[in-house]
Design a protein around this nucleic acid. Structure first.
Lengths: 188, 188
DNA sequence: CGCCGAGTTGAACTGAATCAAGAAACGTGG
DNA sequence: CCACGTTTCTTGATTCAGTTCAACTCGGCG
C-alpha cells in the first residue's frame, strides 16, 4: 500500500484527505502465474497497481500469440484503451508470475475525478506517461531493426530476458522465435 | 477561435471565466506550405490548434525521411513528447499546406493547469486521446500488413491520399514508395 | 523414465528493400 | 502559355532479411 502512495506523491502533492478518498477505493487481489486478468472481448473495469508480478499483453492467434507489452512491479497496469472507452478489448492480459494487485474500478475512478482536485492531475500525468511510452514504442517499431530492439532490451532491461520466455520477447520485438535465436547467436 | 472553443466544450464544461483565462493566452499564427514548425533537436514550446492546414511529423534521414504522423484541421498538434518532457525533439514537424495555428506556450499552459479547475481535466482528456491514437497505431504496426494499413486509409481517410504525396504515405504505412506503388497496382 | 514445451539449427522460400531507369506531374520563369 | 527542370510515381531486376517447415537438443516435471 505504501508503494502506491509513494508513486502518487511523485506525481502530485496529495493531501491526507485526498489520499484517504483514493485509497479506500482500492482492493487488494492476488493471482497465480498464468492467470488471465482480461480476456479479449471483455471490457476492462480496473486500473491496477502491481505490488508484485509480471504482466503480459497479447493478441491471441491461431498459430501463436502476438505479445506487444510487458509490465512489472510498482507500475500501473490496465487495458487502458478499453478502460477509457469502456469498449471490448482487442487483446488479452495475463500474469507471467504470481502477482499482487491493488485495483480500482472504472466507476470509482470517475468518482475520484469528480470529487478530488488532485484526481484529474493524477489522471493527466498518468495519461501523459502512457502516451510517452507509446510514442517511443512507435518510433522504435518504425525506425529500428529487430536486432536493435533486442540490444536495447539487453542494455536497459536485462532482467526481462531472465524472467520472460524468449518466444514472448521475440514477438515483442517483431520477429519469430527462430529469427531471435539467430540474432542472439550473431551477437554473442 | 470559435472552432477551438467548440472542441473544448466537447471535452469539459468550461465556465466563461475559464474560457477567458485560457483563450487570452492563445496567439494566432500563419505559415506557408513547407514551413518547418519544429526542427529536430529543438524543444517544443507550443501546443497548437490547427484552424486550417496539414501537418507532417518525420525523422529526417540521409536518403529519405521517415514520416510517422499527419494531423489535419480542427485538431491539436505538438511534438507532445518533447513538449511534456521539455527535452529536444527527435523529429521534425512541418506544414504540407498553408496553415493557420492558434498556439499556447508551455509556460502559459502550466499556468492554466495551476489556476483553473478545468485545466487539468482538459489536460487529462487530451492525454487520454493521444494515448488512444498511439495504442491503435501500435496494434496496427504489429498486427496488420502494409497493404491492410493502406486499405484502411483508402476507406477511412480518402482525402489524405489526394492531399499528401504517396512517398509520405508509403513511409507512414512502413514501406518504400516502390512497394506502395506495387500495392496500389495489386489492388486496382 | 518418458513426455512436452522451449530453444536452436538447417534448408527452402518469400515479400520487401535496393538499385536503376523511364514516364508522368508539377512549378517556375521567361 | 509554353519550355524546362525538378520531383513524384512507376516498373523491372537483383539481393537480402526473415518466414516457414522440419528436425534435433535440452531441461523440467508428471
Amino acid at each position: 500500500m505504501e508503494a502506491i502512495r509513494r508513486q502518487f506523491v511523485q506525481l502530485v502533492n496529495l493531501s491526507e484527505q485526498d489520499w484517504h478518498n483514493f485509497s479506500t477505493k482500492l482492493s487488494r487481489q492476488t493471482f497465480p502465474k498464468k492467470a488471465i486478468l482480461l480476456r479479449k472481448g471483455q471490457t476492462e473495469n480496473y486500473l491496477s497497481f502491481i505490488e508484485k508480478g509480471i504482466i503480459r499483453f497479447y493478441i491471441p492467434g491461431e498459430a501463436s500469440d502476438l505479445t506487444f507489452n510487458f509490465v512489472f512491479d510498482n507500475a500501473f497496469v490496465s487495458a487502458y484503451d478499453s478502460f477509457l472507452t469502456q469498449t471490448p478489448s482487442q487483446y488479452c492480459v495475463e500474469t507471467l508470475s504470481d502477482t499482487v494487485l491493488w485495483r480500482m474500478s472504472y466507476a470509482d475512478l470517475q468518482t475520484v475525478y469528480r470529487e478530488t482536485s488532485a484526481g484529474n492531475t493524477i489522471g493527466r500525468k498518468a495519461g501523459e506517461g502512457l502516451f510517452l511510452k507509446k510514442s517511443q514504442r512507435e518510433l522504435s517499431l518504425l525506425n529500428e531493426t529487430a536486432e536493435e530492439r533486442y540490444l536495447k532490451i539487453l542494455r536497459d532491461q536485462p532482467r526481462l530476458l531472465q524472467q520472460i520466455p524468449l518466444k514472448y520477447i521475440a514477438s515483442y520485438i517483431g520477429v519469430t522465435p527462430q529469427a531471435l535465436s539467430r540474432i542472439r547467436r550473431r551477437i554473442s
